[in-house]
């Protein structure tokens, strides 16, 4: 699996994401976080793996891990249709700006998230928001759950096939199902 930025012109930054070589590593980091947050973008209904949409993998993962979800674009409606209630929904830029603000107290008003995960935004938008966080919230830990390497995150999965992606998400879900939170 390659750690080149997926979009060729997204030249790697001076500070590059650590690759997540195994889904178990991501699980360990999420478990270590006390206030994780998952931001889900509009590709959640555009990506299909093994006959199932990304959003359905995310719902399985979110149910198992209990990580609160912020839906961007019109994804809230897609989550609701599937019987899953996201913790919040807003534009990708709105949530990005809130995360950058150190005084923001999170979706529930109880504290700033210590790990912010992204999945399913258009690649270039996600890259830009991650860059904004890297520069303006340097202590903020960020992670991507996509199958495309994102250099601006703290941790990113390397570029991977759809099959590998599906497997990563399934393993992550199962690890939470096995061991609880």
């Amino acid at each position: 699996m390659s750690c080149e930025p997926w979009q060729c012109a997204e030249i790697a930054a001076t500070k590059k994401a650590n690759p997540i070589q195994k889904p178990e590593i991501a699980v360990a980091m999420i478990k270590k976080a006390s206030r994780p947050l998952l931001i889900v973008g509009s590709n959640a209904t555009q990506r299909w793996m093994e006959g199932k949409q990304l959003i359905d993998y995310i719902i399985d993962f979110a149910n198992a891990s209990k990580v609160p979800v912020v839906a961007t674009a019109h994804m809230v409606g897609e989550f609701l249709k599937r019987g899953y209630q996201p913790a919040a929904f807003m534009t990708a830029m709105d949530i990005g700006q809130r995360v950058v603000d150190p005084t923001w107290q999170g979706i529930d008003g109880k504290g700033h998230p210590d790990l912010v995960m992204f999945v399913g935004l258009p690649y270039y938008m996600e890259a830009l928001i991650l860059s904004g966080l890297k520069h303006f919230a340097p202590d903020q830990k960020t992670m991507t759950l996509d199958n495309l390497y994102h250099p601006h995150a703290s941790w990113s999965f390397p570029n991977a096939t759809l099959e590998e992606w599906a497997n990563n998400l399934k393993v992550m879900t199962s690890k939470f199902n096995e061991g609880g939170q």
């Binding site: 509009s42 961007t72 674009a73 019109h74 534009t91 990708a92 830029m93 935004l121």
Partner: peptide, 13 residues
């Protein structure tokens, strides 16, 4: 100045 991701989101905004 705001970015919207999908036409649905654009309409609501």
């Amino acid at each position: 100045f705001q970015t919207v991701e999908t036409p649905q989101e654009a309409m609501v905004q």
